[in-house]
Write a protein that binds this DNA or RNA. Structure first.
Length: 580
RNA sequence: CGGGGCGUGGCGCAGCUUGGUAGCGCGCUUGCUUUGGGAGCAAGAAGUCGCAGGUUCAAAUCCUGUCGCCCCGACCA
């Protein structure tokens, strides 16, 4: 492959685009890889296209190696498939909907579980046919409330999604493991630094689920990691280790204190310490948050109270994940009006049994622990309220915020917190979609076997942005070789026969199988060419310039910045060696 | 949906307070010079100032409305 800058459809920009915030967005636009068309929607120019295709072919290669078979579904889909699983309504505003000329409802596919399940049902009917794994690399559409960060999170994006179909849970586990291995190989080849973390399976149902997160400051997922045992989990999936229960017998007697004007934890702690002579911290208090929960497809509204240590905030994402598919909402003043038993700011769990309200607590609230909490009267709090004696929770819930330094649920060491971008997600779906499609295989005994599915995704276009996000410096992009638009960038600086020699070298290297970009532009100053070479970010740069008069050219490594003068005669071999 | 900001040649921006001939840098075209770090000189092309209405002798500028975009948050298999 040989690209000539003199005719390449490319214009680099000297300034950052005004609408770009994150490095990948700025650089991909400046270097002429992509251009914005509409919010969250981008065009790919020739150089960007090469990178996208390279990423895509690595993903395809690894999928084929693990035995996946490629198919392609339409992006434009009729409503019926999503009606069957309820997702036409459940997916909400994120679904791109449209009508055809007859007024029939269509959508642009955000993900294709329904279609895959239906296709397998149409073709396969015997247990002898299974297992099977199918995948596609297709443009997906999601009408995100707020697309951002360039192609890192667009409304149109390229995604590889695959689905495994197995007869039983063991088979599903094997398919899941195969995908996990394939993903590791894929992301390693892409040169992406990533972390595999436990994830919640959320409303999709199913059990085991892991995300591949690329740690970057611009990431929108929060995850914890333990550097001692290797445990890592999405913040929504972190479990809190519970301390050992204590005997209730030794606890002091419950006592109600006057605590006027102490609706917040801070004022409460201050008040009881200065006025009542206690010495407590916010962590000794138990704060109780009221939420109302609605469930999609149901009119029922449940009231729930969540008790967490007073030094922590409620993490709404964790709360939602814990209650899925239920959707929690904040209890408003009007809701309190309907529940006279709940005294806003002074709620304690002592009376919840009588009120018939479900009460879930943070795992740290174990039997025998004593708390300072509301006394269910305005201006009064109770101390020595002991779990298992003065109240009995209905269960535990992971709703409190996670902090750096919290104990690892596996080994007890300190957890660290980082942000990352989701680049892959694997999970064991189970039978939700097979149930909806009625996907059965006829077993050896003549009875139907309900198929169990796994679902696995890789954001292909997002991976391009993630690589740019992780691999760049002040000067520009620094592509890993396998995804770079070409192996080597040859700069002919323009005096005498320099461009001529550069083109000759380019031909030679192309003949040897290298992918070459040669800057053969006439009348462009060397400075411009160097800047462009650094901005475009090919891994190897060869300068055919002033040294040519003494028979040498300059070999540069983009990533390390090292430069070396080498004899022209050795250039081909040296570049081949550098690119291998 | 809440908060903030911005719409002026292809890109990045100034001009708006105080109404009066639309400007700068980059890029582009032509010529000459230049050629190892985003060259110099000269001459050019290119803009319904987001849109609509209003005030005025006169609106990029003031008023009203409207549309769009960006950022933060909410939201997001």
């Amino acid at each position: 492959m040989l690209l000539r800058m003199s005719s390449l459809f490319l214009r680099t920009l000297r300034d950052d685009p005004a609408d770009a915030e994150v490095p990948s967005h700025k650089l991909l636009v400046r270097a002429g890889y992509v251009r914005r068309v509409a919010p969250g929607i981008y065009s790919w120019l020739p150089l960007g296209m090469h990178v996208l295709k390279n990423v895509e072919s690595i993903v395809r290669d690894e999928m084929n190696k693990m035995g996946g078979q490629e198919v392609l579904f339409p992006a434009l889909l009729p409503r019926e498939y999503y009606e069957a699983t309820g997702r036409w309504t459940e997916y909400g505003d994120t679904l791109f909907r449209l009508k055809d000329r007859k007024g029939a409802d269509y959508l642009l596919g955000p993900t294709h579980e329904e279609l895959f399940a239906d296709m397998v049902k149409g073709e396969y009917s015997s247990y002898k046919d299974y297992p099977v794994t199918l995948y596609q690399i297709q443009t997906k559409y999601r009408d995100e409330a707020r697309p951002r960060a360039g192609i890192l999170r667009g409304r149109e994006f390229l995604m590889k999604d695959s689905y495994s179909f197995d007869l039983d849970d063991d088979g599903l586990k094997r398919s899941y493991e195969q995908h996990r291995e394939a993903y590791i190989k894929t992301f390693d080849r892409l040169g992406i630094r990533y972390k595999i973390v436990f994830a919640t399976s959320g409303a999709m149902g199913g059990s085991a689920s892991e995300e591949f997160l690329a740690p970057t400051p611009t990431g929108e997922d929060t995850f914890v990691a333990c550097h001692s045992c290797g445990y890592a989990a999405n913040a929504e999936a972190v479990t809190t280790p519970a301390p050992a229960a204590r005997p209730v017998a030794g606890a002091g007697a419950q006592q109600v204190l006057d605590t006027p004007d102490t609706p917040t934890i801070e004022t409460l702690v201050d008040h009881v310490n200065t006025v009542h002579g206690l010495s407590i911290t916010a962590a000794d208090t138990l704060k109780n948050i009221v939420v109302k929960i609605t469930t999609p497809g149901s009119d029922k509204v449940e009231t729930l109270i969540v008790g967490i240590p007073g030094d922590r905030e409620v993490d709404f994402k964790r709360l939602e994940a814990a209650l899925a598919p239920g959707e929690p909402a904040i209890f408003e003043a009007e809701d309190f009006a309907k529940h006279p038993g709940l005294v806003r700011g002074y709620i304690g769990p002592q009376v919840l049994k009588d009120l018939g309200i479900r009460y879930l607590v943070d795992p740290r609230v174990v039997t025998g622990t004593a708390w300072v909490t509301g006394a269910n009267e305005p201006g009064k709090h109770a101390v020595n309220v002991v779990a298992g004696r003065d109240f009995t929770p209905d269960g535990t819930i992971e709703a409190a915020e996670v902090r750096a330094g919290d104990a690892c649920p596996r080994c007890g060491s300190e957890l660290s917190i980082d942000r990352g971008i989701e680049i892959g997600h694997i999970f064991q779906l189970g039978r939700k979609y097979a149930d909806a499609a009625g996907l059965d295989a006829l077993g050896p005994d003549g009875k139907p076997i309900r198929i169990t599915m796994g679902s696995y995704g890789i954001g292909v276009s997002r991976a391009v942005a993630v690589i740019a996000e992780q691999a760049h410096d002040q000067l520009g992009l620094v592509w890993p070789r396998e995804v770079a638009p070409a192996d080597v960038h040859i700069v002919g600086t323009g005096k005498e026969n320099q461009i001529e020699v550069a083109l000759q070298l380019a031909e030679e290297l192309t003949a040897k199988g290298l992918r070459v970009l040669v800057d053969d532009r006439a009348g462009v100053s060397p400075g411009v060419k160097f800047k462009d070479a650094e901005l475009l970010g090919l891994p190897t740069i060869l300068v055919v310039g002033r040294g040519l008069s003494t028979g040498v050219v300059e070999l540069r490594d983009r990533a390390s910045g090292t430069k070396e003068e080498i004899p022209l005669a050795e250039a081909t071999d040296r570049i081949l060696a550098a690119c291998s």
